[in-house]
Write a protein that binds this DNA or RNA. Structure first.
Length: 593
RNA sequence: GCGCCCUUAGCUCAGUCGGAUAGAGCAACAGCCUUCUAAGCUGUGGGUCGGUGGUUCGAAUCCACCAGGGCGCGCCA
């Protein structure tokens, strides 16, 4: 791929700067930007170079900017360069600079925008990781979509990405699930127990009362008959059935989760079982490693502030010195019965990831894990001697709104909005795109009415419509005998694309590679969604401009060369739209129906 | 009580590691279809960027404090 105007002319700015002001340090040069001008009146591009180095050069920024502008204006490809404001240099390039981008797009196809930024760095993105104790709901959905898009984005930016799902198939939650399924099993057999009578026999009480467990209980009844029940369909000794019920339920629910994810188009490379991690001794090994580093000790923590647990008592416990790595308090690794805390096991899991050679670990988690971030960051820093990068992408709450009314969810009652419900209502593409129209660390309301609307205020529709329009134009042109494949258009005379609206689209397309890099570095896949809306908007505007000015119409049968140039433009737009939609996992539709 | 996140137009939200006169859609108003999908486009009006200080050439952005909303706070995961 040849140079992109943004990188090409940023390099040019740096080169000129080096001549004007010798001895600028790399760290300072890194802060020099060449970015799209916010206001079109300022030109196409703007650089802050003079502002950055003015102090070092001992010159007033406007003066240095003027000298810079003079030098830049003399460069080939620069149509105009002028100092402005407090010390910016505004630059306008010749149309040819932007037209050249089109050839890159046509040659690269949807690989346009691929970057070497990541340099093959191995990244593990963990997302969803829902407990296999029930169906996925909208909260999981946001994490699933954000994680999936982030993984795709990082891959496009040149990272070697592994997508991972951590299956919490050990511990109290799945034990409670085993009991809950056993209740559905007894019901399937026709037990005379009431739910309250059964619940009274469950250690910790009966959780997971949702009806989604009914078919799983029924399946157990079919498979085992009454063999797992006590006399008269009473509760038998749990050692006889608890593992069987738990394992069966986990397997069944995990299958449901995977089916839901499949419908959503979310995929994972690796499903890691918590039980397998525990069985491998990873947690104890990781704790031993930390112990060798002198980070484990026996101590007594201050009582937690706020509402104090009823059974709280000061007692010595095994602690990880998380405060040495920026956490607020040291964290316990063993429960009072001597078993590992969830945190201890999770340290083992993250140690396992590090052991698999990942240099960057990213966990996509729900907002309720916010208090968990600093301790895990401390643990990864400790385990890797601060070498591995660890970050958490927290996804805040999603409120589902329909008909202007909030749709409430309650997991206990089993009446929450499931992912499956949402997919039934609005479909995969709308779910994915809508979830990505909000930055992850802000709450969002998901308006079902808007997501299914076929109008401008539905961003999914708007972008897909733009793509469909592109394809429609190409189909129409093919019927007139034009070659419409990229290879047939790459030699078109792009100089025909000289209208302001056409240049604007080309500038936007040229910005795709730098957007990919910026979004990947910031771990913000939502930027892709907004970029696509902008590109779609420019395309729709160009389309309509052709209604007013016949010379801008894409297809003019008697004007072969201008038509070929515009077909190249349309093909290029469709390619960039597809490239972006692929990151989001949204279908680029060929036509609207 | 403490920690993290959020607060931008009537509504839903962007705002690129500090940059020029803060943007988009919806809603309101005014226009554009004998022409490739009007499922679209163009224009107008609409703001004390929650508040008060501070940092500097420059703050929606960084810092401090305050207000409001959300999430969390040893032996759940």
């Amino acid at each position: 791929m040849s140079a992109n105007p943004y990188t090409e002319f940023r390099d040019a700015v740096l080169a000129v700067l080096a001549r004007l002001v010798p001895g600028v340090e790399p760290a300072m040069l890194a802060r020099v930007e060449l970015s799209p001008a916010r206001d079109a009146a300022h030109g196409e591009l703007a650089t802050n170079a003079a502002l950055i180095v003015a102090k070092l050069a001992r010159q007033a920024p406007p003066v240095l900017a003027a000298r810079l502008a003079t030098e830049l204006a003399a460069l080939p490809g620069v149509a105009a360069a002028a100092a402005a404001g407090p010390g910016f240099v505004n630059i306008t390039l010749t149309p040819a600079c932007w037209q050249r981008v089109l050839a890159d797009v046509l040659r690269a196809g949807t690989a346009f925008g691929d970057s070497a930024l990541g340099g093959g760095t191995r990244v593990n993105v963990e997302y969803v990781s829902a407990n296999p104790t029930g169906p996925l709901h909208v909260g999981h959905c946001r994490g699933a979509v954000v994680g999936d898009a982030l993984a795709a984005l990082l891959a496009k930016a040149g990272f070697a990405v592994t997508r991972e799902f951590y299956v919490n198939d050990a511990g109290n939650q799945v034990r409670a699930l085993g009991w809950a399924v056993y209740w559905r099993y007894l019901q399937a057999l026709g037990t005379g127990l009431t739910e309250d009578e059964f619940a009274a026999q469950v250690p910790g009480g009966l959780q997971y009362r949702g009806e989604y467990l009914v078919p799983i209980g029924a399946a157990l009844a079919r498979a085992h008959g009454a063999a797992l029940a006590g006399p008269g369909l009473s509760v038998a000794d749990p050692t006889l059935w608890l593992d069987i019920c738990r394992d069966h339920a986990v397997a069944a629910l995990l299958a449901e989760i995977r089916a839901d994810l499949d419908r959503l188009g979310v995929r994972h490379d690796v499903f890691t079982s918590e039980r397998a991690i525990l069985a491998s001794g990873a947690a104890d090994a990781a704790i031993a490693t930390l112990d060798e580093k002198g980070l484990i000790y026996q101590g007594v923590l201050e009582p937690p502030k706020g509402k104090l647990p009823d059974d709280w008592e000061a007692r010595a416990q095994t602690l990880f010195r998380a405060t040495a790595f920026g956490d607020d308090v040291d964290r316990p690794l063993r429960k009072s019965d001597g078993s590992n805390t969830y945190f201890a096991n999770d340290i083992g899991y993250h140690a396992d990831k590090l052991g698999r050679g990942f240099q960057v670990l990213i966990d996509v988690l729900g907002a309720d894990h916010g208090g968990y971030v600093s301790r895990m960051a401390a643990a990864v820093a400790a385990l890797s001697d601060r070498r591995a990068a660890f970050s958490v992408v927290l996804c805040q709450i999603v409120h589902v709104v329909k008909g202007g009314q909030p749709v409430r969810m309650s997991k206990r009652a089993g009446t929450y909005v499931t992912l499956a419900d949402l997919l039934d209502e609005v479909g995969r593409d709308a779910v994915r795109f809508t979830m990505l129209t909000r930055k992850n660390d802000a709450q969002m309301s998901f308006d079902i009415d808007q997501a299914i609307a076929q109008t401008r205020d539905n961003p999914v529709f708007y972008v897909q419509y733009a793509h469909a329009r592109c394809r429609s134009v190409l189909r129409a042109a093919a019927e007139l005998g034009f070659g419409t494949e990229p290879a047939a258009l790459v030699d078109a005379e792009f100089a025909w694309l000289s209208d302001a609206a056409e240049i604007a689209v080309l500038r936007c397309m040229a910005g795709w590679p730098r957007l990919v890099e910026g979004a990947a570095e910031a771990r913000e896949p939502h930027r892709v969604a907004f970029y696509l809306q902008e590109l779609a908007s420019l395309f729709h505007a160009l389309w309509n401009k052709g209604r007013d000015e016949a010379t801008l119409r894409f297809i003019q049968a008697e004007q072969r060369e201008p038509t070929r140039a515009r077909l190249a433009l349309v093909a290029g737009i469709s390619i960039v739209l597809r490239s972006g939609l692929a990151v989001l996992g949204v279908t680029p539709v060929e036509e609207m129906r």
